[in-house]
Simulated scan of single mutants.
Amino acid sequence: MDSDIELDDLLRDLTGEITHLYRWLAESAGINHTDLMCLFYVRTADGTATPKAVSQHLGMTSGATAIMLNRLDKAGFIIRSPHPTDRRGVLLSIGPEVQRSGLLALRERFIGMNQVVFSAFSEDELTIVRRFMRGLLLNSRDSLRVLRTENRAASAEKAAKVS
Rank of each mutant, 00 (worst) to 15 (best):
W24I: 10
R109D: 10
T50C: 03
R130P: 00
D9V: 08
I5M: 06
T85C: 05
C38T: 14
F121L: 15
T34N: 09
S119I: 00
L126P: 02
K158R: 05
D73C: 05
R71D: 13
I18M: 05
S101A: 11
E150N: 12
A160I: 09
A153E: 15
K161D: 13
F118L: 03
H83I: 06
I94E: 06
V116I: 04
F118R: 13
I111A: 13
R80Q: 08
D13G: 15
S28H: 04
T34K: 14
T19S: 13
N70L: 01
K158P: 00
E150W: 01
L144A: 04
P51K: 03
I79Y: 00
M113G: 02
P84Q: 12
I111V: 07
M113Y: 10
V98K: 15
F110E: 06
M113A: 04
S143N: 15
K158N: 11
V146W: 01
R145Q: 15
G47M: 12
L11F: 08
R145L: 10
F132V: 10
L144C: 13
L39I: 10
L144W: 15
V42F: 00
R148W: 02
R23L: 14
M113R: 09
D46V: 06
D142V: 10
F132H: 12
D2F: 15
L72P: 11
L91N: 12
H20G: 07
L147V: 01
N70S: 13
R109E: 07
G112E: 10
R134L: 14
N70Y: 03
R43A: 14
S122L: 09
T127S: 04
R71T: 07
P51Y: 00
M1G: 08
A45D: 01
G59F: 14
M60W: 01
S122M: 06
D8M: 09
M68P: 03
A160K: 05
I67V: 06
Q99D: 06
A75N: 10
W24F: 05
F110R: 12
R131K: 08
E125I: 11
P96M: 05
D73T: 11
H33K: 13
S81K: 11
T44L: 07
L72M: 07
E150Q: 15
L11Q: 10
N151Q: 06
L103Q: 03
R43G: 12
S81G: 06
N70H: 12
P96H: 08
A120M: 06
L126Y: 08
